[in-house]
């Protein structure tokens, strides 16, 4: 009996992946049909591989928070703050020779600072959620304000422009002939997927999300696991911040504010259950590619950015409706 149920669950999950792939292909075909000469250019796809990893990482971070029925509204704040702190460090350490030629050691130090920011910020979220017992929505809403606010205080408003070349390579460069952020994204996605599926932490998170009470009675260390999951979320967000600041060669307190909604949308579209217990990295990765194709197609068709916002929102509601309908049938 139990085996049968498990089998059906696996089938269902893979059905979800199949549906996502079908949707991606559909978007691809429609966009190609609408503007074949512009959409199908190599340049278009290459630029997507540079842009999507940061959004993809934020979406995976969002998915991890959703696994335990939470959410992280501070990811964009963490990403920006990480980039800004690293940027300030580079400015401080490279007065004489100019920021662009900063040595590798300093750049690595900047990376440590950025990742450390993510770790500390995530730990703060985790602490507020598990120890102080604030609901994730409000805790991360508040800390998100604090992180963004600190970013404003540190920069005074305008962007920090000019990052070392080694740093920009993370967002702009090439590795093995592919975009560096793309390669990094694939590696990180595989690592996160491994953590979620093959390690006790991941399995615990799934179980806690599926049934918090049962997990408690089964003796799972709920608080510690949830705490770790928010730290992971914070680190992923700071990696996205490194990519963003590397790609644009600048860091600012209000970069990527529309990423928040998009990350939620992609996580939900990728088959994550916001109530907890269900989520796969592969699903999120396909969903982010599907939506990047969609939005680049719309940009080629010269839709205004505001209309694209409208479409993102409508898409989110549509996905909710479809998911609800699917669950009812089952």
């Amino acid at each position: 009996m139990i085996n049968k149920l498990d089998f059906r669950a696996i089938l269902n999950r893979d059905k979800n992946i199949v549906q996502l792939i079908v949707m991606t292909v559909l978007i691809f075909v429609i966009m190609t049909a609408l503007s074949p000469d512009k959409f199908l250019r190599y340049y278009n796809f290459e630029s997507i591989t540079y842009i999507f990893p940061e959004l993809g990482l934020l979406s995976i971070a969002m998915m991890i928070a959703m696994l335990t029925g939470g959410i992280d509204l501070s990811v964009v704040g963490i990403a920006n703050l990480s980039g800004i702190l690293a940027g300030i460090l580079f400015k401080k350490l490279a007065d004489e020779t100019g920021v662009a030629d900063t040595g590798l050691a300093v750049v690595l130090l900047g990376g440590v600072v950025a990742l450390g920011t993510g770790l500390v910020a995530g730990a703060l979220n985790g602490l507020l959620i598990t120890k102080v017992k604030i609901t994730p929505i409000l805790a991360t809403l508040g800390t998100g304000q604090v992180f963004t606010g600190l970013a404003i205080v540190l920069t005074g408003g305008p962007a920090i422009v000019g990052f070392p070349e080694h740093w920009s390579w993370v967002g702009n460069g090439k590795l093995l002939g592919l975009a560096t952020p793309f390669v990094l994204f694939v590696l990180i996605a595989i690592a996160v997927s491994f953590i979620l599926v093959r390690t006790p932490l991941g399995v615990n998170l799934m179980l806690i999300g599926t049934n918090p009470k049962a997990a408690l009675f089964a003796g799972l260390k709920r608080e510690r696991m949830v705490f770790y999951s928010y730290m992971m979320t914070g680190v992923l967000a700071s990696i996205a911040g490194i990519m963003l600041s590397g790609r644009t060669n600048a860091a600012k307190s209000d970069y990527g504010t529309s990423y928040l909604l998009q990350a939620v949308l992609i996580a939900v579209l990728g088959g994550t259950n916001p109530a907890g217990g269900k989520g796969r990295v592969l699903g999120v990765a396909i969903a982010v590619i599907a939506l990047m194709l969609l939005s680049s197609g719309f940009q080629i068709l010269r839709f205004s950015n505001h209309l694209i916002d409208f479409i993102w929102g409508a898409f989110l509601l549509l996905v909710i409706a479809i998911n609800a309908y699917k669950n009812r049938v089952r």
């Binding site: 959410i71 929505i137 928040l260 909604l261 939620v264 949308l265 939900v268 916001p274 109530a275 839709f303 205004s304 950015n305 505001h306 209309l307 694209i308 916002d309 409208f310 479409i311 993102w312 929102g313 409508a314 989110l316 509601l317 909710i320």
Partner: peptide
Amino acid sequence: IPLIVTLGTGSMVRGFLLG
């Protein structure tokens, strides 16, 4: 979850207004 619904509707309405 109301948060996700209202994120969506808010983005839609604002996008529609400005776009």
